[in-house]
Write a protein that binds this DNA or RNA. Structure first.
Length: 262
DNA sequence: AGTACCACCTGACGGC
DNA sequence: TGCCGTCAGGTGGTAC
């Protein structure tokens, strides 16, 4: 699930649990998630150091180390973190285990192993290399409009394009467009300034609400479409059937009645 | 510049 | 019950 709100919650989780503790050992159970670094490189880069602070850009989480370098965490489609005491060792899906000298562990969990872990010297360089756009929650309205006016294509794939703005994925783009009452396949060329302003405002409010509710769909307002993505899902506004179509290869959910196509 | 499709991986689910 | 195809919220590459 890790889109911007989910990763922000993981950031806060690290802040609340794992900072300023010496890393005594790093156990790498699968090397598949390592990006541009060896097991040995990751171990020596972390062991004997502490996690000092966190920074998030889009769906990427960076943790500053006492060495001055950064631990980079990306969660793919199934990533999670779990901080727990020694006794509970042996979780089924943890790929990397950080052991702290207080007897606790932080597990990087990634069932499908599509996430990425690395150590970086420079975050800015990394973001530039990935060509990531500005973080969606930092974006101002004028900049947002400028970005949208630069491109063509569907509004959904535009919101999801990490090179334009970073953080919005498949699920939250659907939610933002549902609340904006705009069909996800609408061509950005056809959207007025007012349309864009509405999308921008909904983007902000959806992100804010999702973070406030700890990115836990079970705690989202019933007015959210997010919990209706399953087959036979119903529109929270009109009760109609939720439609499912492919847009840029991703499954988009929307309500035909409530969302106008431009 | 778009989009369509594939690949990377594993697990869950529905149909038969 | 069991096998199999399909799909899943990520990114990145290719070919049109």
């Amino acid at each position: 699930m890790p889109e911007l709100p989910d990763v922000e919650v993981l950031k806060q989780y690290i802040d609340a649990t794992s900072l300023h503790k010496n890393i005594s050992n790093v156990e790498i159970k699968s090397t598949k998630v390592l990006e541009g670094i060896s097991s040995k490189g990751l171990k020596t880069g972390l062991e004997g150091h502490c996690l000092e602070s966190t920074h998030r850009h889009g769906k990427y989480l960076f943790v500053r180390l006492t060495s001055g370098h950064w631990l980079m965490l990306h969660f793919g489609m199934t990533g999670d973190l779990k901080y727990y005491k020694a006794e509970n060792k042996g979780m089924s899906y943890d790929q990397i285990l950080f052991d702290f000298n207080n007897g606790y562990h932080l597990a990087y969990i990634n069932k499908r192993m599509l996430g990425k872990v690395s150590i970086l010297e420079d975050i800015g360089k990394f973001i530039k290399g990935k060509k990531l756009g500005p973080d969606a929650s930092d974006l101002g309205l004028e900049e947002f409009k400028k970005i949208i006016n630069r491109v063509r294509g569907s509004i959904k794939s535009t919101l999801m394009n990490q090179k334009l703005m970073a953080g919005i994925g498949n699920v939250y783009s659907d939610e933002i467009l549902f609340q904006s009452k705009i069909h996800p396949a609408s061509d950005v060329d056809n959207l007025s300034g007012d349309n864009l302003k509405r999308i921008f405002q909904k983007m902000k409010s959806v992100i804010r609400m999702a973070i406030k509710r700890r990115a836990d769909p079970g705690r989202y307002p019933s007015s959210f479409l997010l919990n209706q993505r399953h087959k036979s899902g119903k529109c929270p506004k009109c009760g109609g059937e939720v439609e499912r179509i492919k847009i840029s290869g991703r499954s988009a959910c929307y309500c035909r009645k409530c969302q106008r196509k431009y």
